[in-house]
Simulated scan of single mutants.
Amino acid sequence: MSQKKLKVRCWIELDDSRFFGPGRAELLELISIHGSVSKASKVMGMSYKKAWDMVNDLNNRGPEAFVTLQKGGQKGGSAILTDFGRKFLHRYQKLDEKLKSIIKEGEDIMENL
């Protein structure tokens, strides 16, 4: 019997280049949980530089900042999602849930192949 999979990934593009998708959504969610780009990147197994670059890209190319960063201090820096960042992430997650539901329907159809 052949193995069947249905895959869909949702990316938002700006100016013909990827801007937001599953990886950035996960990064924002982990920043929200941990209050730190460094901690979020460690949980994801991503370099701190790559995570930092992603946050900078979101903040610079988006219509508003997604993350507020505070450098240094006794306990190190911190990061929090802005209201815009939280709302954007929530809307993206709702869209992702809808897509997963559609994928489930497709998998149900594929069972008959």
Score class of each variant (00 low, 15 high):
93 Q>P: 01
37 V>I: 12
47 S>R: 01
38 S>H: 08
21 G>W: 11
10 C>I: 14
50 K>P: 00
46 M>H: 00
58 L>N: 05
45 G>Q: 08
4 K>C: 04
105 E>T: 14
4 K>P: 02
46 M>P: 00
6 L>T: 13
7 K>C: 14
88 F>D: 05
31 I>K: 05
85 G>V: 10
23 G>T: 07
5 K>W: 10
56 N>C: 07
103 I>P: 04
20 F>S: 02
31 I>Y: 04
98 K>S: 05
57 D>Y: 10
81 L>A: 14
61 R>H: 15
85 G>M: 07
34 H>E: 06
15 D>H: 04
1 M>G: 13
82 T>I: 09
32 S>K: 12
48 Y>H: 00
19 F>H: 05
10 C>R: 12
11 W>G: 13
72 G>T: 03
10 C>Y: 14
83 D>F: 12
94 K>P: 01
84 F>M: 02
63 P>C: 11
16 D>F: 14
34 H>S: 05
92 Y>V: 14
64 E>V: 06
10 C>S: 13
40 A>S: 07
24 R>Y: 04
40 A>I: 05
19 F>V: 05
59 N>T: 05
70 Q>A: 05
54 M>R: 01
53 D>M: 03
51 A>D: 01
15 D>T: 03
58 L>E: 06
58 L>A: 08
51 A>V: 00
35 G>M: 08
85 G>Y: 12
92 Y>S: 05
29 E>Q: 13
108 D>C: 10
15 D>L: 00
106 G>A: 08
65 A>Q: 11
110 M>C: 12
35 G>R: 09
79 A>W: 07
59 N>Y: 05
66 F>D: 02
6 L>S: 10
73 G>M: 09
88 F>P: 07
81 L>D: 10
48 Y>D: 00
3 Q>A: 06
32 S>E: 11
103 I>C: 12
113 L>R: 15
24 R>I: 01
1 M>D: 07
69 L>C: 04
77 G>V: 07
48 Y>Q: 00
52 W>H: 01
47 S>D: 03
48 Y>F: 00
101 S>R: 06
59 N>E: 07
22 P>N: 13
74 Q>G: 06
77 G>Y: 04
58 L>Q: 04
48 Y>P: 00
51 A>G: 03
51 A>H: 01
25 A>I: 14
93 Q>N: 03
12 I>R: 04
39 K>R: 13
5 K>V: 10
2 S>N: 10
101 S>Y: 03
7 K>F: 15
10 C>F: 14
111 E>F: 09
63 P>E: 10
80 I>W: 08
107 E>V: 11
38 S>D: 05
28 L>W: 11
17 S>L: 03
97 E>A: 10
67 V>D: 03
38 S>N: 11
13 E>N: 14
53 D>W: 02
78 S>T: 15
73 G>V: 12
36 S>V: 08
2 S>E: 11
96 D>M: 13
